[in-house]
């Protein structure tokens, strides 16, 4: 068991500031995760060279990989700080851990990025069930266990952004909607009541920035911490869009 862990953090003071690196040495604890490293830096914000600095800014909330907050690039791979254990990282690189912010979103400070684009894109695809209201209107539609089994994995998407970070087509300046939103489109279109808005959602996927920008690199499936079946989702999205396209063609 090592005595210390070396952590290199890519820092940035503000939106348009240049980035710089700082290195920290942290006492090793069994089963520690990257979040613990960041907490230890806050407790004693001194670099390896002995220079005083500020605690590292990063987003965090649940620390049990279900809120999606603490996404960052760890040793160059996008994942959550909370569920990444230092022991596993030592197998990738025994010498140091590097922490960098996500590259597809504006860096607000250090490892904290502004992912509000993801939530705005949920509006584009009308990611909701258009119910008639919140009075007592009885139970929802019956849903077979088979359909529930298909839908549940999509409903675990925690909008963490891993799929967008790993996607070669999703860039800071384009409008590509990203794998998560396509998967969620499939989720809402498959729900008996949600299907009411299916055409609207598919129309959005046919627009520029929609599904046709997917380059089928399939990174979204590989990096998703919640095993959301993004590739299946995108394939289904394509099928639905194609069917809609033909429908539009013949109903003109």
């Amino acid at each position: 068991m090592p005595e210390y862990v070396t952590v290199r953090v890519k820092r940035q003071d503000g939106l348009d500031s240049p980035s710089y690196w700082e290195t920290f040495r942290i006492a090793y604890q069994p089963r520690m995760n990257v979040t613990t490293c960041l907490q230890q830096i806050a407790l004693n914000p001194v670099t390896l060279e002995g220079r005083k600095t500020t605690p590292v800014a990063y987003d965090a909330a649940c620390l049990e990989e279900v809120c999606g907050s603490c996404t960052m690039n760890i040793n160059g791979s996008v994942r959550q700080a909370c569920s990444t254990l230092v022991e596993a990282l030592r197998k990738e690189n025994p010498n140091e851990i590097t922490l960098e912010p996500m590259t597809k979103y504006p860096v607000m400070r250090d490892l904290a990025v502004d992912r509000s684009r993801m939530f705005r894109d949920l509006k584009r695809i009308k990611a909701w069930i258009p119910v008639d209201g919140y009075y007592d209107l009885g139970p929802g539609p019956r849903i077979s266990p088979k359909l529930q089994h298909q839908l549940y994995p999509y409903s675990r998407c925690m909008t963490c952004g891993c799929c967008t970070e790993a996607c070669p087509q999703y860039t800071k300046d384009n409008r590509f909607i990203g794998a998560f939103a396509i998967s969620l489109t499939v989720l809402f279109n498959s729900h008996p009541t949600g299907a009411v808005l299916k055409e609207d959602r598919l129309k959005e996927l046919m627009e520029p920035g929609g599904i046709s920008e997917c380059g089928q690199a399939q990174n979204c499936l590989r990096v998703c911490p919640k095993s959301v079946p993004n590739v299946t989702g995108i394939a289904q999205g394509y099928r639905q869009v194609t069917a809609q396209w033909f429908k539009n063609l013949f109903s003109r």
């Binding site: 069930i129 139970p139 266990p145 809402f188």
Partner: peptide, 22 residues
């Protein structure tokens, strides 16, 4: 019971029994 019905209607992916009930 009304609240669970409401959640059901807004699409919460509750586990199901073979006939489709929660």
């Amino acid at each position: 019971p009304r609240i669970v019905d409401l959640l059901d209607r807004i699409g919460v992916t509750f586990n199901r029994l073979p006939e489709g009930d929660r």
